[in-house]
């Protein structure tokens, strides 16, 4: 019974802290996305052709590792039992993906366009530390940054 009380306290605290951190993160992501709106990232199905003279072509990468909090882990443990959309993980995946893309775009600040964006996702939970089942996701975004001659 003592265990249960402890869990309830931890849940309350981590829900509060997790919500604040997540809200702030989304707010910052949004601001940075707006700031970078004129620096597009594109993925082509066909070849990019341009008459502009290309000054520089560079591989750019951005990586973000985001962990869920205890509350989200708790909720997802039960979702795991009943099945269905893991709503509490969706925001973690979204934050990780958007953060990785933003970091990649910020790295290529001087480039005019980033083409052929690719995303890789890796779960950081390993066999050894899987017991606590905290969702820890790492997203790597990479693409080709092209800078035109001015």
């Amino acid at each position: 019974m003592g265990d249960l009380l402890l869990i309830i306290v931890i849940l309350g605290v981590t829900y509060a802290t997790g919500s604040i951190i997540e809200k702030n993160h989304f707010k910052k992501i949004r601001q940075r996305e707006i700031a970078l709106v004129k620096k597009p990232v594109v993925t082509f199905g066909k070849k990019l052709t341009t008459s502009k003279k290309i000054k520089n072509v560079e591989l750019v990468t951005g990586e973000a590792a985001i962990s869920g909090d205890y509350f989200k882990t708790f909720v997802s443990a039960f979702r795991n039992f009943f099945g269905g959309r893991m709503v509490s993980f969706e925001s973690i995946m979204d934050r990780a993906r958007r953060e990785a893309v933003l970091r990649m775009r910020e790295k290529a600040k001087n480039a005019d366009i980033i083409v052929n964006l690719r995303l890789e996702t890796a779960m950081l939970n390993t066999e050894d530390n899987n017991n606590n089942q905290l969702p820890k996701v790492s997203v790597i975004a990479y693409g080709t940054a092209i800078t035109y001659e001015r």
Binding site: E33, V37, R79, V87, D94, R97
Partner: peptide, 30 residues
Amino acid sequence: NGEDNYSYENQIDIIEDNVNVTKTSDIKEF
């Protein structure tokens, strides 16, 4: 310029709605 096969300037817009995160609260789910 017009010779590019990809013109994006008029298409750029911030997507207001985040479709990747379900619009429900964690506490409701809990």
